[in-house]
Design a protein around this nucleic acid. Structure first.
Lengths: 184, 184
DNA sequence: ACCTGAACACCGTTCAAGT
DNA sequence: ACCTGAACACCGTTCAAGT
């Protein structure tokens, strides 16, 4: 008779993410996660594979958590909202966020965010062949800002980055609008 | 009588960076570095502090290695050259590059690169109060692209990123030029 | 001053065993 | 099916000792 399971994948990933948020990536050990769950380290392996797979799972968890904007909003507002959401996520999970840049963006979580950007860029009037490359550049920019901010690379306050983005975001959306108009 | 030193800080950092380049961050252990140098692990501690300080040293080493463009070139060419240089550095040191975003940009190596960008932006005609924030945004963008590329986040060939940047770089420098003209 | 050797408190992961 | 316990091959770092 199978005994009742006391663990599942989501519980392990959630606990692991919370641990990384609180104590950093170095403290994120299989043993520490197991201890938090009142279980033996080896009990985790059935549910998350190995440590590498656990980290992949946490990154995906983080991506899935990012809220997407109301599709009824203007495209500029949607990009602005997503930028804010990514920054918030990076600040909430500073240890895990950098891993996002080190994994192929081919998962459901990555597609989910990318498709929302695609939709915004289509509504901006960008020609179809330029949608994908514009998304690559914008995502790199936003992830770069978010990783720098949460990683402590900037030596300025968050509110300064707020106003940096207000200014530079306008400059970017204006340039993209103009490009869509001239090049369409 | 002090015995002749067989180790120095630069040798240790160089060996460590080469090891990380070849085998990744997980393989970058004090013991493995020591073995490469034919020495006991504890011999490293005198020269590089502890492991955290070693990583800081490697990041600084990487920054110092980035070639700066000829100041006589037009500002657009200088930004283009620095972008290419940062990408090349990221591809050469894919394991270490991400650490760049996780350390305060207050070292000599960080200042060195930043000042070159400042100079380019001044020559672009940007008003002084906007120099620093523009550098923050451009550096975040370039580091984001370089980290994504070397980290494997993109699922496209390097040449595609080349052409992405050719296009998006023009869009950016055009927007900055226009802003400098209108806002000066 | 510079390096070694032994030791301590950790890691991730295997394997066989229990229920 | 799910978890445990013991074991293996590693870590970073301390401390005292050698030259």
């Amino acid at each position: 008779m199978p005994r009742p399971a006391i663990l599942d994948r989501e519980t392990v990933l959630g606990t692991a993410l919370a641990l990384a948020d609180a104590d950093g990536l170095d403290a994120l050990t299989m043993r520490a996660i197991a201890q938090r769950l009142g279980v033996t380290p080896m009990a985790l392996y059935r549910h998350v594979g190995d440590k590498q797979a656990l980290l992949d799972g946490i990154v995906e968890h983080l991506l899935m958590e990012i809220p997407l904007p109301d599709p009824a909003l203007p495209w500029t507002e949607r990009l602005r909202a997503m930028t804010a959401a990514v920054r918030a996520s990076a600040r909430r999970h500073p240890a895990v966020f950098p891993l996002l840049l080190q994994r192929p963006a081919v998962t459901a979580g990555a597609r989910r965010v990318r498709d929302a950007v695609y939709a915004a860029l289509r509504d901006a009037g960008l020609p179809e062949p330029e949608i994908a490359r514009t998304e690559r550049m914008l995502a790199s920019f936003v992830f770069g800002v978010a990783a720098s901010e949460s990683g402590g690379r900037f030596s300025v306050d968050t509110t300064v980055i707020d106003s940096d983005l207000e200014w530079f975001g306008d400059l970017l959306t204006t340039a993209l609008s103009r490009h869509a108009r001239d090049g369409a």
